[in-house]
Structures are given as structure tokens and as C-alpha cells.
Design a binder for these strands. Structure first.
Length: 259
DNA sequence: ATGCCAGGTAACACCTGA
């Protein structure tokens, strides 16, 4: 069994004690990290190596940054989403774990405010992701596209849809692109097991959002058919969000059985 | 309409996030 998790840590340096404690407790085999907020040289890799993880990073200064941790070697790593050589934001990387499972760590642009250049950047990024996923699926391999998609798929995936009417995370253009990517043939791991409304992976630091359960479901694990065939279990581990010095996101995970 | 928190950077304020 391979336990795979995705977690937007909101700075790996600020989250180091929490991240190490969670890895010891939850013992995932593979972790897709987002918003590491450091250059590659600044990533505290030795602490993760000590826990038995191999580490690959795609960082940048101050903002964004993604990483992959795996108890297996991480092979054939590629960084950046194809289709725009001008894009300097570190939001995408892929690697092969456990010999044949291709995993992607995705930090999709937020896109707010929608009347700025940030929103078309998000939509363009999603168009590039669509094209890339389409190309990957043609290979008919075991793929897990996990990360912070910055899309609230349905009105039931947010505590108060009215408050988000003008938010990039719910705009029809964002949702349509997310749905189009899934419609290429991907399976949402969490929603394969849990259809209840108001299940969240993110709670704002402000206004007591965590205490009031005012959350959003924006972190998703999307599986190729070959991965979905092996899907045994999935869930959201809310534990880390309740800790001191928590990230505003909590891990979403799934378990694949052996091929 | 704005700031509420939190993190990073750099400087003792500002940017970004969702």
C-alpha cells in the first residue's frame, strides 16, 4: 500500500516542527508539498532525510514553491508546467515514486482579485494544466495530480457561497476549467469515498474561521484511471490544522494498493 | 469599503495569500 498526501504548508521553514511531527504520526509514503516559500538551497532537507524521506524541490524566493517527499527514490523529476517559458513562478513539479507511480505537486494560482491580471494568469495556467494532463493521460500510466488547486468545485464545498460571489475560486471560468480537467478522465480521490457537503481542507487564519468551521475544499488529489483502479481509501486529516503554529491548509490523502 | 491573521523580506512597513 502506498499512502500519498498533499499539503500546502504555507512556508516549510515556519512549519518544520509541525511537518516533522505529522510525518512521524501519519507516516505517509509520499507527500506533495505546496507553498514551501523558499529557494531549493533553503529547504530543510536533512530533517526529512532523517525521517527516511527522499526530497526533491522546485522552489523560489519568498513565494510559491513545491516539493515531493517519498520513502522511495524519486526518479525522472521535471519542474514547471509546459507551455509558457516566460513563467517564473514555481508552481508545478513531477516525479516517479515507487518505480512506476507518477506524482505531480500542483500550486495553482489563486487568481484574486478577478479584475486584475492575476485572474487571466490563473485561467491561462489552468489551460496549460489541461493540455499537460491530456498528454500525460495518453501514456496510460498511474498518475496522481495532487495539490492546492485554488478552486472550490461546488457551492457545497464552501461555508458560505454568497460571501465568495466575486472570488476567483468559484468563478464559472475557474470551475469550468477544473471540471474540464477532471473530465479528461481523472477521479477525485476524496470524493470517491465521501459525498458529504461541507468537507474542508482550508480554513482562513482570520475571523476564527477554524473554530467556526468556515472552510473551503480546495486541495484535491486527481487520479488517472490506472491510479483510480488501485484506490483503496482517501480522506482529509484535520489534525494538523488544529495545532499551534498551523498552516491554514490541512493534508488530503489517499491510499493506493500495490500494482 | 477595509482589515481581520500569518509569513517573508527587509526594515521598523509593505506585499501576498484565499
Amino acid at each position: 500500500m502506498i499512502k500519498i498526501a498533499t499539503w500546502n504548508v504555507n512556508s516549510i521553514k515556519a512549519r518544520l516542527p509541525n511537518a516533522l511531527a505529522w510525518l512521524k504520526e501519519f507516516a505517509p509514503d509520499v507527500v506533495l508539498l505546496q507553498e514551501i516559500k523558499t529557494v531549493d538551497e533553503g529547504f530543510p532537507r536533512l530533517e526529512f532525510v532523517d525521517l527516511g524521506y527522499n526530497v526533491e524541490t522546485h522552489g523560489q524566493k519568498t513565494y510559491n514553491g513545491v516539493a515531493i517527499l517519498s520513502k522511495s527514490p524519486i526518479e525522472d523529476v521535471s519542474t514547471g508546467l509546459p507551455g509558457n517559458d516566460e513563467d517564473v513562478q514555481a508552481r508545478y513539479m513531477e516525479g516517479t515514486v515507487f518505480g512506476s507511480v507518477r506524482v505531480a505537486s500542483i500550486y495553482l494560482p489563486n487568481g484574486n482579485p478577478i479584475d486584475t491580471e492575476k485572474f487571466p494568469y490563473k485561467l491561462g495556467w489552468m489551460d496549460r494544466l489541461y493540455a499537460h494532463v491530456q498528454a500525460c493521460l495518453a501514456l496510460e500510466e498511474t498518475y496522481v495530480f495532487g495539490g492546492d488547486y485554488n478552486v472550490i468545485p461546488t457551492d457545497d464545498d464552501v461555508y458560505n457561497i454568497a460571501a465568495f460571489a466575486k472570488d476567483a475560486l468559484v468563478q464559472p471560468e475557474s470551475r469550468a476549467r477544473f471540471q474540464a480537467i477532471k473530465n479528461l478522465g481523472l477521479t477525485d480521490a476524496f470524493r470517491s469515498f465521501n459525498h458529504a457537503p461541507h468537507q474542508y481542507s482550508y480554513w482562513d487564519y482570520q475571523r476564527g474561521a477554524w473554530q467556526k468551521d468556515n472552510g473551503l475544499l480546495i486541495d484535491h488529489l486527481l487520479l488517472s484511471p490506472q491510479a483510480a483502479d488501485r484506490l483503496k481509501e482517501a480522506g482529509i486529516d484535520k489534525g494538523p490544522r488544529g495545532k499551534e503554529k498551523a498552516s491554514d491548509h490541512t493534508p488530503v490523502w489517499c491510499v493506493l494498493d500495490e500494482s
